[in-house]
Structures are given as C-alpha cells and as structure tokens.
Nucleic acid binder design. Structure first.
Lengths: 173, 173, 173, 173
DNA sequence: GATGAATGAGGGTTCATTCAT
DNA sequence: GATGAATGAACCCTCATTCAT
C-alpha cells in the first residue's frame, strides 16, 4: 500500500472516530469524507461499506489498547499497578462509543478475538493482583473484569472521574 | 380520551419498547405501527413525532420506577432493604435502552424532573442506609448513587446477575 | 334540513374561506373542522370531499355576487354607476382566492353556469354604459369585461386601491 | 461544476417549470425527477429542498427577463418601443405561475432584488415614454408599472391576446 | 347525527452505495 | 487512483377520507 493511501486510511478512521464522538453515530459517510478532505469514492475504496469502517474504528482502538496493555504488563512490576494504569488508559478511550457502534459481539472474528484476548489479559492481571495481595480476594477475577468493564465502557468515563476512582478504591485491599 | 384510544396508546409504547430492546433504536415508525397492528397514522396521532414516542417510553418507565420506589420507601423498614429492592427492580428495567434513546438530560422538562427526583430519592435512601449503619460510610451518598446508576443503567443488567450482586455486596457494611 | 345543520354548513363555508384567505390553500380539513368547532366527521357529512367544499365556497361567493349584481342592475339608474358598484363590490371579494382554489372552468356545471351568467350580465352592463356614453366606445364590451376580470381577480385587489381606480378611470369617457 | 451536472441542473429547472405550468404547483418532486429522467437524489443534490427549486425557477425566469429588458433598453430607440417589446416578452413568460409559486416577496434576497430592479427598470421606461410623449402622461409611472404587472402576471397572458393589446393601446397616447 | 380515532397512500427528504468523469 | 454526481430504497411525517364509538 502506498504511503499516501495508508495516510488516507488512517485519516479516515481518525476523522470518523472524532465525528462519531462529537456528533453521534448517525454521521453520514459523505460528511466523514468531506471532513477528512476526501471524496466519498476514496472512503469507499478503503472501506467497502459503513460496517467495515465502524469495525476498523473498533479494531484500531482495541489494538492500541492491547498494545498498551501488553507493554504495561510485560514489566515485572506489581499487577495492581499495571491494572490501574490499564484502567486509567481505558477511561480515556472511546469504549462506550465503540460499544454503541458495534453492539455485542460483532460477527467480525478479529474483533471477537481481540475482546476475548483483552478480557483474558485483564483477568490474568486481576488474578495476579489478588495473589500479590493488592486486590480484594473475595471476588472471582472474572467478576472483577466485569466490574471494570462496566466502569470503563460507560459513556463519559474519564480516568480521573469519581466513579473510576471509587471503583478502583473499592477493589483495593 | 376514548377507551380504545388509551389502549392503543399503551400498546404503542409497549410495542416500541419491545422492538427497541430487541432490534435496536433504529426501528422504523412503520415497523412499530405494523407490529402493534396499527396504521402509522394512529401512531402519529398519539405521538406527534418519533422524539415524542421515545420520550413517552422513557417517561413511562421512569414514572413506574418512581411509583415503585416511593412505595418501597414509604414503609419504615431499613433503608438498606429499600435500596436493595429498588436496585433489583431497576435491573429488570430497560434503563440502558432509555439512556441510549434519550441521551443525557433531554430537553423534556418532565423527564429532567423525574431523573432529578429519582436521584434525590436514591440519595436519601443511601444516606439513610449509612446512618442506620448498613451501607459503607466512606463514600458520599451522591457517589453511591452514581455507582448504582452505572450498575443499573448498563446494557444487559439483570437483577440477579453477578455484577449487581457484587456491587451491592461491595457497598454493604 | 334542520336549522342547526344549515347553520353548521354555513359556518364551515365561512370558516374555510377565512382560513384559506389567511393561511393559504393548503389548510387541512382537520383544521377547518377544528376552527369551526366541529369534528371532521361533521364536515364530511356536509361535503363529501374537499373538492365539494371548495366548490361550495366558490358557488357561495359567486351567488352572492350575482344577487348583488342583479339588485344593482334592476334599478334604472345609469349603467356606469351599476358597473362601478359591481366592480367595487368585487374588489372586496376573495375572487383571486376562488380562482386559485378551482382553477379555470371547473367541471362543476352550476359553477360554470354562474360564471357564464355573471360575465353576460357584466357585458350587458358594459354595453349599456357604452350606449349611454359613459364608457369608452372603442373597446368591445367583451374585452371590457375581460379587463375588469383581470383587475378584480388579482390577488390583493381592493375597492379603493390605485389599480382599480386607474382601470375604472381608464374606461370612463 | 461538471458539464453533465450543469446539464442536469438545467434539465431539472426546465422540466419542473413545464410540469408546474401543465399540471399545477402540486407536482411531486418524484414526478419532476422521473419526467426529467433522473433519480430524486439527483434533484435533491442540485436543490436542497422543494423551495430551493421553486426559487431557482423564479430566479431563472426573472434573470432572463432582466437580460432581455436590459438589451432592449440599451439601444437609444424610443422608450415606448422598448416598453412594448418587454411587455410582449413578459406575456410569453410564466409570470403568473411564478407569482403563485413564490407568493409576494419571498425571503430569498436575490429574488427580491431582481423584482425591485425589474420594477425600477420598467418605471424608468414608463417615465421615458411619457417624456417622449408616446405614453399617456396622466398616470404616474409607478401606477403604469402596476397596471402592466397586472396585465402581464395574469394566468394565461399571451403576447398577442386581446387584453395585452387593449392595455397597451389604452396606455398609448 | 356528531365525534374524533384509525387508516394508509403519498410526499419530502436523506444517505449508503455505485459509477461516470 | 480520486472525485463527486447519480441512484433509489427507506425513512419520517401529513392529510384526505372512512368508520367505530
């Protein structure tokens, strides 16, 4: 893929994400293209239909989250610290938007795999934190992840809002 | 209002709520009418436009919730018990759907008032529970309500799912 | 026909005419009925469809005009005087509206007959005025009537506006 | 603008004008598109809504009239001759239709300006004709224009019909 | 007989998608 | 390859008309 094509592709994803976040999910393909400074034709050259674009936005965000999470997990610092960092990172991501864009488990297999892998990674982190004694032990790791998902995929979630804080505090031992 | 008209009005609200829950917010007015066994015209006679129908669904649900909450609060049993009942009742309601239908505080004043009143009621309950010593005292009542809102307005929330349980347990003293 | 029925019928015609004049031809049957303080059903009992109502409005107006014109013509005063009176009366009538309601010669036979008769009467008047020497003789009576029609069926025509005056002056000898 | 787009735009205006003239103002956008051999979408790409199309028709006609009038006025022949030519040209134009499409002074500023300018030009012509002694001097130029407007904006006006003739004759000295 | 609720065809408009330039 | 014009299905909504109350 030529450099400019790649740049256009990324431009489209970014623009679409921004428009969805600001003006809601109903933004038209035309407007996305126009805002990106491209013709609709170009948009459709990169994404065969709207669904494909939406999925790419989700994939793009979750891939970045995965990258971040892996980086944070790799070191051998305490799991709690990693968990906290990941949660705070999540809170800055448009996860609620992505949920609303492609509700439930989409048919897209890569998306499904990513979600599974992310949940698995979080679960490992939760388990580790419980073992190191920084996370309450009376909740099964799976449930902890569920809780965190709720906290982090809620519309308007931010890293430093009270709710994120309260939930993290509540989980801490 | 004639008896049949009232019946139709309720039928429409119920049908629309069901369709929204099952097939998403994008269901067309035509389909709502057809599913209800009515003509579109009838639907529009009862609700001047889509927005009005959506707001009525929200109002209808929140009014019932208010009625329930007041009934439960009136008795002089422990606040914790009332709070638990209300939360479990909420979990059976399509609150996430309603959120997504009329995001944030709608322009509709009655809706806004209802939301305010419900939150106030919950806050009184939380405060009461803290005073009677059944609810953790280290979280301000407003935050407790925020937490519960998140728990209860999440898509797919159910009274007996683990998350609701965990959150209630986490709040208990 | 019972007295109240007759009253309702006239009320409808008057109301409809008023609404058409004020808010344009597109006023709905519903609104006409509501403004008249009746149900649509009653309206439809009197007029089988919209067209019938529109034609009745035209008939009603033209019948009154005919009555007036005949009264004015019957006396044996000068034709010019009669013509002037009729023209001024016309200018106060919603003739432009009626034209736009039922454009050209409607299929309605009574309406067609009335228009024919009115034109004939005007032509007699014009001819008479020419014979008594008060109206320019260099325009055939039929054309005079055509001119007057234009003057009098124009939207916004009023008895005392400049155009009516100018045209009458222009025809005077 | 691409050549085919421009062609389509003109095709739409022409087609719509023809349909309005033949079948009345109520012709649907769908039918206009179909008659023009285009999809509705194309029609809406060129004109954001019905009103815009209607205004374009009016603008288009009045712009042509202005061009013609200026051309005819530029020469230094007698004003009466110019006036006669313009009036006859008008009579071939769908001015009555345009009046009924966008009644009175529309909100559209260019349309308003054009009407003003045309009236001003006619008034200059009338004044000039009075000064050269070819037009009756006993009617103020503004009124002459009013009269001509009535003659020329009447439904069914034609350059060679008796009424136009009579009015022109009546104004001649 | 009066009422107004119900009907549904039809109109204006949007927008995902295709395709000529 | 990029552009944006064209397409038409589908949506929201209106309103003349019918019919149950």
């Amino acid at each position: 893929m030529r450099a400019d094509a790649r740049r256009n592709r990324e431009l489209i994803v970014t623009t679409a994400l921004g428009l969805f976040a600001e003006h809601g999910t109903a933004v038209s393909m035309e407007e996305i293209a126009r805002t990106a400074g491209l013709g609709v034709g170009t948009l459709y050259r990169h994404f065969p239909d709207r669904q494909a674009l939406v999925e790419e936005i989700a994939l793009d965000t979750l891939r970045r989250l995965m990258t971040f999470s892996e980086a944070v997990t790799t070191g051998d610092g305490p799991c709690w610290q990693a968990l906290r960092l990941v949660v705070e990172h999540c809170a800055g991501l448009p996860l609620a938007l992505i949920r609303s864009l492609s509700p439930a488990t989409t048919a897209n297999p890569e998306l499904a795999r990513l979600e599974r892998d992310l949940n698995a990674l979080f679960e490992r982190l939760a388990k580790g934190a419980q073992e190191e004694g920084t996370l309450r032990g009376d909740i099964p790791p799976g449930e902890v992840v569920g809780l965190l998902n709720v906290a982090v995929c809620r519309p308007g979630a931010r890293a430093d809002d009270h709710l994120t804080t309260v939930i993290l505090d509540g989980l801490r031992r």
